[in-house]
Design a binder for these strands. Sequence first.
DNA 1: CTTGACTCTCCCCTTCGGGAAGGCCGCACA
DNA 2: TGTGCGGCCTTCCCGAAGGGGAGAGTCAAG
Lengths: 291, 291
Amino acid sequence: MDEVSIGEFARRSRLSVKALRLYDERAVLVPARVDEASGYRYYDVAQLEAARLVAMLRQLDLSLATIKELLACDPVDAAARIKGYWRELESAHDERRKLTDYLVNRLSGKRSVVYEVATREIPERRVLSLKRNVDPRGAWALGKEFIAILRDRPLPKMEGREGAMFSIYWGDVSADSDGPVEWCKPVPEEGAEALALHYPELTLRTEPAHREAYVALPNDALPTGSSGNPGVHWQLAGEALQAWAAEGGIDPRHLTIKPEDLGMRVTYLATEPITSTSAPYCDFAAPFAEG
Amino acid sequence: MDEVSIGEFARRSRLSVKALRLYDERAVLVPARVDEASGYRYYDVAQLEAARLVAMLRQLDLSLATIKELLACDPVDAAARIKGYWRELESAHDERRKLTDYLVNRLSGKRSVVYEVATREIPERRVLSLKRNVDPRGAWALGKEFIAILRDRPLPKMEGREGAMFSIYWGDVSADSDGPVEWCKPVPEEGAEALALHYPELTLRTEPAHREAYVALPNDALPTGSSGNPGVHWQLAGEALQAWAAEGGIDPRHLTIKPEDLGMRVTYLATEPITSTSAPYCDFAAPFAEG
DNA sequence: CTTGACTCTCCCCTTCGGGAAGGCCGCACA
DNA sequence: TGTGCGGCCTTCCCGAAGGGGAGAGTCAAG
């Protein structure tokens, strides 16, 4: 008695017949009974709850594969996963908002932000570093890990920019290419080895002296979520550096790492105690050799 | 000299070669020159700006067709259109947030909102109404139009629920089916005709007496943007009514308008002066005949 | 029994590309 | 002089999540 045809079930669940047949094929929502002879699908009305759940999850743009997993696992776990997924959506949305703001301003003729390129001399220095191959998500996680390590144990203060933490993108970080990415914290020359003993997770190495071109990033340039994708400002800063190199008589190919590879350094100058949520001064730099 | 091959152009614009070929085919971004003999595409470096714009617009999930239009029209107009598109994204995002909240609560075991169904007797009454066939977007616009008309000109006060504005969804309002939707404001029996003369845009008609089942909606149930799509709470309220009908011995088919058609009334009880942004008490009702 | 409403499968269409196959160049190296 | 490599070309196939329709079979009510 509580078996209904696909059409009836579609009406009640507000899903299309086409969708229901697809969900059957993908084993997301399988009818309670399929008539051997005719192939007709019959659903139990008790399946309506699951069907409506699927419909809602689809409205969140979750893939059928994901939905299938969610239906299979414990509801509480599912809730947690949905929450995580939502955070991703949130940060992607934030990123898009920034991009929209920039585009609307630019197209309206207001050039809101100007990326001014300057150069600076970086002397040789010792750095404690954490380097790993990561995907876009992992890049940000790596930073948080690095910060957590530094926060836990004592570190001699270094004044101003000299001691600013920075990260180096040694290669493209995207879905198919995974860096590596290195996070670095400069330490004083003397006693560096002794200091490094307190940080077995980190590597002590020497950053060679070089010149680099850089642009300061606006305050909201850091990715807000855990998405870790470059974001508008990183992109624009990269373009600014590239344009600077092209105009300034420096062959872009003489940038140590080519801008189009995002092989760039990001300097975080946190004047406040370093926390994972503070938004420090931040700039974007590329080492170069005079052309 | 400033002509570059597709690979070089791809690197500089951070678009894939594959994407560039597609954009050429779709006439979104056509190479400056195509070699007759070899078919090689050559881009002008000046096209980089357009290419980066396309890349950004794609990050906003705009379709190639839309992007093509945006590139063709005046930048200021394009900015306006992007802003409008962003508002849509924003409201869709809000809707998804509500849905996520609900789902996470439900799956975690906390039944946050309970939809209690009650019934009420509606006497025959005169209403001023505005009825039109609309798509989901238009439904909300129609409401704003209706409110604007009522706000402009004097109207005798009616106390409490009696005078509450409401809308009737006479048919499914979705991408393929367009209602119609009717917005109504009850007016006192006496002098109704005279009053109606002040509102030539509106129709005066008589709502027959009936009984209806209804559920109160939470405060955040109204669509926030101009999307006008049903939203979670409308959906849940509809399900609650359907469940009530099934359990209460009333054949769902005896609901005047079937729940699955969303043929429902939404009552807005605005105690404040009616504005387009206030969030009034709101309920969701379906007339029915005893079964 | 017939008819109309329903359902089945199968195939093609959409968007925005990714991936691979096969063929055309030019260039550098042995 | 080969020959390998890298870049480019086209063309076909693939995915996600269905929509639309054709042609054929099925169900239920009159």
